[in-house]
Amino acid sequence: MNIFRLAGDMTHLFSVLVLLLKIHTIKSCAGISLKTQELYAIVFTTRYLDLFTTYISLYNTIMKLIFLGSSISIVWYMRHHKVVRRSYDKDQDTFRHYLLMLPCLLLALLINEKFTFLEVMWAFSLYLEAVAILPQLVLLQRTRNIDNLTGQYVLLLGAYRALYVLNWIYRYFTEENYVHWITWVSGIVQTLLYADFFYYYFQSWKNNVKLQLPA
């Protein structure tokens, strides 16, 4: 465990905590995309199937359970909680997220580290995670007056991705046989999506105008 990996996991954890804080204390999920949250719930469910087959460390097991539990409970709150669900921007959150799943599944069947059920599901989860933020970015673009918690949530997620890239570079140079092309390529695609978004986000913040992404 290197410092980049730990910092990456912690920013990921904080991003989830910020979201849960917003939902629990303010009882609001305004500006949060249910489509993205559903994709994350699927991402963690399909990636952590090895929870039952492989023990890595107590840290690893606990973090997996936290990400599984939090992503599923966020979806539950947004869909079913009688107060929280009323703040959901349903009409703005129109991204057809299920259309992302089929190409990711096909890609996972074609490109995987090993053609087994767990490995295909693992590759699928990485491809899906790379694009899972898209509905959230589209919703942010449409929403006026992004509140602080939503902005911090996306900022923390972006930091988590960037730190993971640093972690891979560090591991590549310090560990023997540490080569994971699928993780790297899908991770870099994901990080670029955030970088592109943040570029426009900071531009609009600097110029103090409403965020407007190019078509």
Binding site: R5, D9, E113, K114, E119, Y164
Partner: peptide, 10 residues
């Protein structure tokens, strides 16, 4: 651990 069947990242 066997190569390619062991993922220790989250």
């Amino acid at each position: 651990p066997p190569e390619g069947s062991f993922h220790d990242e989250l």
